[in-house]
Design a protein around this nucleic acid. Structure first.
Length: 374
DNA sequence: GAGGCGTGGGA
DNA sequence: TTCCCAAGCCT
């Protein structure tokens, strides 16, 4: 239990400005978690590695309240890893639609198949083996290993980074490699020694609970925190400065034209490439400008008329997207539904959009269409 | 190893 | 409105 940690690099500025003597960090955290932590989340109170894994993947960069309904739908549809592995990827994408970061869904499916084919349908118990699986990194592997198998391994997610930065006064932006490495080392050093399964689970859950329910970014509830007397941020009044904020950068704006090609109450969707934004989802055909979109409409069998719909904007983490939707009708007299090019397309009645994995803003657009147009 | 990758909600 | 980013991983 280092009461004083220093960064490995001698040239770099010190990561820690101070360090409280917290030899009993884990004991205090476990005691706090048992009395004040969360115990009734849908993925708690189980040792089923499948359920724990599913929740951890969904919770990556995603808040608890957002995950809960998705988690319930997934479990109902795919009660075990074999069911998920056997399902078509398209079905997985459809259930994931709206949750974001769609590479998680593709990796989820690949991971289920790897567990079935490489591990006989049972998740491996070690952090190292877990981290070999698609979509499972160092932190998620530790979460699964500790919750499902009682492994003594530390997580390092946004909650933990915030807690460590404040309690131990870790300087620097945690997204920076040097800072993150120091936090991994610190987190490892804080693990409870000689802990049983229950203690390990309570410790890991306690890290998350403390960050999520007390040590929040905006208004940390320091008065209820078990580490308040020793917390560098609390003692020095620097809760707002720790952890250091991400360096600012301007987000670019992109513009795209989307084709709403209708045949009665059905609309044409096009499958997006497996990687990149909205990878693997079904979306509206796009073009870089108005003329190019009109050309695509003709290729798909449109009757030549293209009318504007209300534009919308969608903000991603790293850019803003202005969407210009254009409505066109299929030319039935002209032989219609010919689809040129090699893109995979499908005609879907608006009421059946749910069966396809559609990006959130496109889904919103089509929902509005169903109410106003037909 | 720096940047790509969604969405919704809070301040 | 605008900014920030939440139970991170992959390339």
């Amino acid at each position: 239990m280092p009461s004083r940690l220093t960064p490995s690099s001698t040239a770099a500025a010190p990561v820690l400005s101070a360090s409280p003597a917290l030899a009993d960090f884990s004991a205090r955290l476990i005691a706090w978690q048992r009395q004040h932590g969360r115990h009734d989340l849908p993925w708690q109170n189980t040792r089923d590695a499948y359920r724990i894994w599913l929740s951890e993947i969904m919770l990556q960069q995603t808040q608890v309240s957002t995950v809960i309904p998705y988690y319930a739908r997934f479990l109902e549809r795919f009660p075990d890893v074999a069911a998920l592995a056997a399902a078509p990827l398209d079905d997985v994408m459809a259930l994931w639609a709206g949750l974001g970061y769609y590479s998680r869904a593709r990796n989820l499916h690949r991971c289920a198949q790897a567990v079935v084919e490489l591990h006989g349908g049972a998740f491996p118990a070690s952090v190292e083996a877990l981290a070999e699986l698609p979509g499972i990194g160092r932190s998620t592997a530790a979460a699964i290993a500790s919750f499902a198998f009682g492994a003594r391994a530390t997580i390092l997610d946004g909650n933990v980074k915030r807690v460590l930065a404040r309690v131990f006064g870790v300087e620097g932006f945690p997204g920076e490699k040097r800072v993150e490495n120091a936090m991994w080392t610190l987190a490892e050093s804080l693990l409870p020694s000689n802990a049983g399964n229950a203690e390990v689970s309570a410790y890991t859950q306690g890290l998350m609970d403390l960050g999520a329910t007390l040590c929040m970014r905006g208004k940390p509830d320091c008065e209820r925190c078990p580490f308040a007397p020793d917390c560098v941020a609390n003692v020095s009044g620097r809760q707002r400065q720790l952890p250091a904020a991400r360096p600012r950068k301007a987000v670019p704006t992109r513009r795209t034209w989307m084709l709403v090609l209708c045949d009665g109450d059905a609309v044409m969707l096009e499958k997006r490439p497996p990687s990149g934004i909205w990878g693997g989802l079904w979306s509206l055909p796009e073009a870089a400008d108005e003329a190019a979109l009109a050309e695509r409409a003709r290729e798909f069998g449109g009757d030549g008329a293209v009318s504007p719909l209300a534009p919308l904007t969608h903000t991603f983490t790293h850019f803003k997207l202005d969407i210009e939707p254009r409505l066109a009708e299929l030319d039935r007299a002209g032989g219609g539904s010919a689809v040129l090019g090699d893109a995979e397309t499908v005609w879907v009645p608006l009421r059946n959009i749910d069966a396809y994995g559609v990006p959130a803003p496109v889904r919103k657009l089509l929902d509005g269409l169903q109410g106003s147009l037909i």
